[in-house]
Amino acid sequence: MSQSTSAMGNEKIKTSRRKFLKTATVLAGAAIGYSWLKSSQILLFAAEPKDESLPWYGIVIDIQKCIGCGNCAKACKNENDVPAEPFFFRTWIEQYTVKNDGSVNIVSPNGGIDGFKQTVPDEDIFKSFFVPKMCNHCAKSPCVQVCPVGATYVSPEGVALIDEKYCIGCRYCVQACPYGCRFIHPVKKVANKCTLCYHRLKKGLAPACMETCPTGARMYGNLRDKNSDLVKFLKEHTTQVLRPNLNTGSKLFYNALSSEVR
């Protein structure tokens, strides 16, 4: 193709191209603008709207009261349709036994559902105690921080929840939880964990583990309400969260927590 013959054709193409470019730019601009208007906030780190009228839930577990009966873990599986296999727990109980030689024996057979048998002879035991574990419903949840799609979040009531219809199953949240509270549901194939029985709270009922705890070792309540039993308990007792060094903003407070517990 020689230069002279193509010149005219090029000119024509250029005008039509310019027109097309113009249209395309306008279209793209409109799309960008509209998309931005619609949901600009979701591109940013969305601020949590603090609705003072809603409760802000916290939990207390009193280690001195726990007798390791396993009713909580059993009820949790019943209430939330968690598979019975000993690999999936929204809550479980650990027994710590500190021996006289300083070593620590930790067990949690089937999450404590079937109870505990003390295998360390009495004369070797320095001290022993049960520690129920569950989601800490952290205010600065590492699991929420790492979720790439926003399928896990802290609800306006301060409950860390999972969106089962939106979770992609990348398991990053399972890695990020320092407390080992998350697992991948073997049937639903999405992340799963304690919801503080959100469906029960919404109906005015206590979480299943607390409903069935015979000794009242577990408590939940509104941290915003300075007159609630929970806040009173926190005021009168020296409580501690797990892994305070990680600054997860845990809202699960343990009474009489021993330093061996992680």
Binding site: I168, G169, C170, I184
Partner: peptide
């Protein structure tokens, strides 16, 4: 576990998530 939902990473990326 839910590869068919992978596109969500592009449409609603969580800005605090490295992934």
């Amino acid at each position: 576990s839910q590869p068919q939902r992978a596109y969500e990473i592009m449409i609603t990326p969580h800005s605090s998530s490295a992934m």
